[in-house]
Computed example of a mutant assay.
Amino acid sequence: MDDEAVKWLVRVQSDAATGDDWIALTAWLEASEAHAEAFERAERLSAEIADNACEIAAAIAGPTTEVFRVAARPVLSRRWLQLAGLASAACVAAVIAAPTLQRAYDGAATVYRTGIGETREIVLADGTRIHLDAASTMTVRLGWRLRRVALAQAQASFDVAKDSRRPFVIDVGDQRIRVVGTEFNVRHYDQSVVVTVRRGVVEVHQPSLGPEPVARLTAGAELRHIESTAVSGARRVDPDGAFAWRAGRLVCDGEPLTQIAAELNRRYAIPIQVTETAGAKRFSGVLYLGDQALLVRRLAGYLSLTVRRTDRAITLS
């Protein structure tokens, strides 16, 4: 069983590992508690080899008489001698492969970016689906024991594949989101973090405040937070509004025009500028993210604003 666990470990840490490999491993782990224990032993051994690669290499390179003296001890069974030989070979390989093993343990970093007006759907190797909004940057690492995402200035919705042995963690601003399998949306722009849950349970942590979560969000809950503060406010919402951008709509709930313009400027090549007076006005409703000229005309009409257009900008006053 230990040999089989090692084979699984090698299989999923390979650069050629696929989502089917992870699904097959999950099925093997869940088939028996003994399987899970064997896999954890293999992981611990791999990590120990990587951590002590230099010492192990020096020991293996020692005088051959030492090897014969150990082999002559009557307390060692033939099975243990075979395992010792295999371990020696593994240690030699570990000296060379330690950086690769560490990358596999943490997961190789993959960076995804979208430009202005560009959205992207991403399917990770574990089956998780991510929709990345316009003008967003996201880094993904799929490790052996942890799936990790870092959101820079970005908005993304997540439909996380369930894997109880590999939690899904998102670092966003000064907060950390932890889930196993759920669907939620994260918005992070201008030091503002908004997390909206459509299915499942999401834990939100703020490491600077300690290990306990600042909130546990269930379906229909939304958390809003400003970076570098200790306050996170949760409320009940219609979660579909947070996902509306995927269908080409922007749902506004009393936001000031300055914030709405910033959101629109991630989607259109010609930027929208607002005067101080216009920027303070608030809008509630649904904007359809199609033709920019039509959208601006409707927004200006609703807020009684004047539109001035040049080749370089659109100004609302």
Rank of each mutant, 00 (worst) to 15 (best):
Q153E: 13
L287I: 09
A108N: 06
I116D: 00
V172M: 02
T277L: 12
A313L: 02
A261C: 13
T100S: 11
R129D: 03
R267M: 02
C252W: 00
F158L: 03
E55R: 15
R297F: 03
R187T: 12
A262Y: 01
A215D: 06
L264S: 12
V140S: 06
A104R: 09
A93V: 08
V195C: 00
V197P: 02
A215W: 03
C91A: 14
Y105S: 05
S192G: 04
V197D: 00
P211A: 09
P211V: 10
G285K: 01
S46G: 06
T306K: 15
Q82C: 10
I49Y: 15
V169Y: 03
L146K: 11
A90C: 07
T229E: 06
L142S: 15
V193Y: 04
D3M: 08
D311E: 02
I270R: 08
T275I: 00
E203L: 07
V75Q: 09
A161Y: 03
M1V: 13
D51S: 13
A42F: 10
Y189Q: 03
G117A: 04
A219C: 15
I60E: 07
R73N: 05
H225Y: 01
R103Y: 00
R308Y: 09
E183L: 06
A16R: 15
V237G: 04
S232Y: 01
W8H: 12
I226Q: 11
E30F: 00
T100Y: 09
E43F: 05
A300R: 10
L250K: 01
T119H: 07
E40G: 00
K162Y: 09
V172C: 13
A50Y: 03
S192V: 14
V231Y: 08
R235F: 05
K162A: 15
R224A: 14
T218K: 13
E183C: 13
Q206G: 04
T110E: 15
F68I: 05
V123M: 09
A27I: 01
V214L: 05
A280T: 06
L295V: 04
S14T: 10
E183R: 15
T315I: 11
R216M: 00
I226N: 06
A98E: 11
Q259D: 13
R79T: 07
D174P: 02
V180L: 12
V204N: 05
L303E: 00
S88E: 07
R148W: 01
A36D: 12
T65Q: 15
D238H: 08
E222T: 11
T64G: 11
R282C: 14
E48G: 14
T119C: 04
P213N: 02
T128C: 06
D238I: 09
A98D: 06
R148A: 11
A84M: 11
D253F: 02
L305F: 01
V237C: 10
D21R: 08
D240S: 15
I56N: 08
V140Y: 11
E118K: 06
C54P: 11
V286S: 07
V274L: 08
L101D: 06
A109K: 10
D15W: 10
G173P: 10
V12P: 13
V274E: 09
T258K: 01
T128R: 13
D190I: 03
T137S: 14
P207M: 12
D106C: 07
L76D: 04
V140F: 05
L9R: 01
A57D: 02
